[in-house]
Design a protein around this nucleic acid. Sequence first.
DNA 1: TACGAACCGGACAGTGCTGTCCGGTCGCTG
DNA 2: CAGCGACCGGACAGCACTGTCCGGTTCGTA
Lengths: 206, 206
Amino acid sequence: MPPTGPDTAIPGRPAADLRPAGRDPSDRRNRGRGAAAQNRSALVAAAREVFADVGYDAPLSSVARRAGVGQGSLYRHFPDRVSLALAAFEENVSELEALADRPGTTVEDCLSLLAEQSIAAVAYIHLLSGRADDPRVAAVAQRVTAVLAATLPEAQQAGRLGRHLDASDLLMAVGMVSGLLTQVPAAGRRATAGRAWALLHRALVP
Amino acid sequence: MPPTGPDTAIPGRPAADLRPAGRDPSDRRNRGRGAAAQNRSALVAAAREVFADVGYDAPLSSVARRAGVGQGSLYRHFPDRVSLALAAFEENVSELEALADRPGTTVEDCLSLLAEQSIAAVAYIHLLSGRADDPRVAAVAQRVTAVLAATLPEAQQAGRLGRHLDASDLLMAVGMVSGLLTQVPAAGRRATAGRAWALLHRALVP
DNA sequence: TACGAACCGGACAGTGCTGTCCGGTCGCTG
DNA sequence: CAGCGACCGGACAGCACTGTCCGGTTCGTA
């Protein structure tokens, strides 16, 4: 072994995040009657960041810390991990549905958005593909599948995507890329996702 | 490797957890001077099963339990998780290298074997793709890449695989499938892997 | 201004995993 | 057959995360 310097420490982890992201738990303004909604949305935002950085298994205590909120408030708003995750990713789903509702949107647009979302939130796809037994999760997965199923036929009739595909194939492709991304440090995810989609592209066109 | 009998891992086992897999920790024969090698290989076999069932993050204590061996023996033989995993998956790698050395082996054969191995041992690919910073892991990944790099050109010249591919693309494809499999309960993995490879096939041929 | 419902933060007990340590067992060797 | 070193098993301390509980704060209302 070469005389490795201080570099021996964990390489891909520059940032220890004890930082309360601008919110201070002891700030009086977090307290009192009207703060509930603010605390809730701070928790959701923090959950998105932490799930993105650390993964779906991230400690919930670190979410509370990042949100600048006590443990108690976290568990009062979100009794378990799934309900927090669902709240955190609700925006992803509704954004996707909004995109699909806009006239002229293609299934490729939807896939692009999903791909982009999956880079920032591997845990989002992980949740969608993995916990199909939980009815709350299944409902969300169903909404995503519905978006793809609705937009896919147009692309197929236009000859841009192969007729061998169905909506579940597309969701599987997203799941494959996101599964690959979980194995890769966060810093390299965008590049890896690009390579993976480039490879997959050949599997999707006619 | 000593001529131990029950050496092969059983892939499709529904498998309870607490059972010591035929070995009893209090069995005197596990003790004494010559038992070290037997305990070691029992640990490796148990690790293969447990990593397959539970995943790479499985508790090491459950490996010791399944091997019918004390915690102390586990940590004496394998000081950390990576060294245990490397021992557990060494057989996969050497099997792959042996296949590649056999005349007439194609890169498709190697991919098939990798695909098959990844179903039984998602953690194996997870380790290969994920911990590239650990030099021991990197060495193993390099061996796998070398096998693919050596056999790929023949298939490309024969027109069976596209010239746009290189060995890292193939490893990435394996990583994508295995990443997808981690999101799926063990029971459905074979079927899911089949669907995923069917989709990917179109991305690999010219 | 005074009261109390709603809400907050953090301490804390419960739980599970890791890695170490040590008393005890075995079998080789003189 | 007695001694000794190698080896074993499991207890245990340390640590991290979960989810609960309670004293304290805030602000609407009277």
